[in-house]
Amino acid sequence: MSGKNVVFDVVGTLVGYEKLYEAIDARLGDRMRALGINSIPMFGYMWIEVAEREYTYLSMSGAYVSYAHVFESIFWRMLWKSGIPEPREFATADDLAAIMEGYMRMEMRPGAKECVQKLRDAGFTVWAFTMGDLKRVGGYFKQAGIEMPAEHLKSCDSSSLGKPDPEAYRPLLNQLSSDGSKPWFAAAHMWDVSAARRTGFRGAYCSVWEREALTDLFGEMDVLADTLPEMADKVIAASK
């Protein structure tokens, strides 16, 4: 195994949420705007973030549930929190199924393929560690034409232990540092990359999803970048 390894978070980092937002808009946008809910991306962001919290809390309390299950189940609560008094009258199971299909079709961000290729050309072995299920997340790589060997794609589902629990990162950290090298963890979620860094990875953060790094909360990073290709360049330079 190469002594140069970089582990990516996938959804939110390499994969963007635009197709999900488009699916929400196509099924519910007009109905939501009629009720004064004018920002579909804001609704989508709230749904994603609250689902991540509930997923994490379930994992922390010893009741692990896959992220996709949490995300789908919490849909009706998110409608209610948005100001819709009767969510199950407002939207149907078919609406949710169509939106979840958009979730399955999400695409790699601009620059994601270039980022991965830059690292591989520089001699890095690229890994992925996700809260998502392996079939869905593997499909994102496949449809983008990015080769990702199955043995390099890891999911929290396998251990029933969700990020950002330090123990979720530790098995892969131990595997990749067995030769004495220090692997990288790269993400566009500061909570994710900072937790990986505290566990023992080197940390690379890209602001493409959150914009504000908030290092006053999460601590300093080894690499900060605004785009995925720039992050790859900085990881390569910092590894020389």
Rank of each mutant, 00 (worst) to 15 (best):
D179A: 15
E147F: 02
V235E: 04
A122L: 12
L161K: 13
A168D: 02
E72K: 15
Y67T: 02
T130I: 10
G29Q: 07
D165V: 00
L134E: 12
F90E: 07
R198T: 09
C115M: 15
H69G: 00
K4M: 14
G3T: 09
L96K: 11
M46I: 03
A26Q: 13
M46G: 10
V50Y: 14
F201C: 08
L172Q: 06
F75E: 01
V126M: 07
P41I: 14
A112Y: 10
Q175L: 15
E86R: 14
V193R: 05
M46Q: 14
I99G: 06
N38A: 11
I40S: 06
L35I: 03
M106K: 10
D192A: 09
A225R: 01
P164W: 05
E151T: 14
I84M: 09
P183V: 10
E72Q: 15
E22V: 03
D179V: 09
E220P: 01
P85D: 12
G111D: 11
V208Q: 01
V223Y: 02
D226Q: 14
W80S: 13
P164T: 11
A187D: 08
P149K: 10
Y103T: 05
Y55A: 08
S177P: 02
W209I: 00
D226L: 07
M131S: 12
E22T: 03
H152E: 03
M60K: 04
P229W: 01
M1D: 05
A186W: 06
L214D: 13
V116P: 04
G203H: 05
L58S: 06
F43D: 06
W76I: 09
F90N: 07
A195S: 15
M190E: 08
P229V: 03
V223P: 03
A26L: 11
E89G: 13
I236Q: 01
L79S: 05
G180L: 10
L28N: 08
S61V: 05
K118G: 00
P85L: 06
E212R: 04
V15C: 08
A98E: 15
F218K: 05
I37T: 02
E220R: 11
M108N: 07
Y140Q: 05
Q175F: 04
Y205S: 01
A23D: 06
M106W: 07
R53Y: 12
D165P: 00
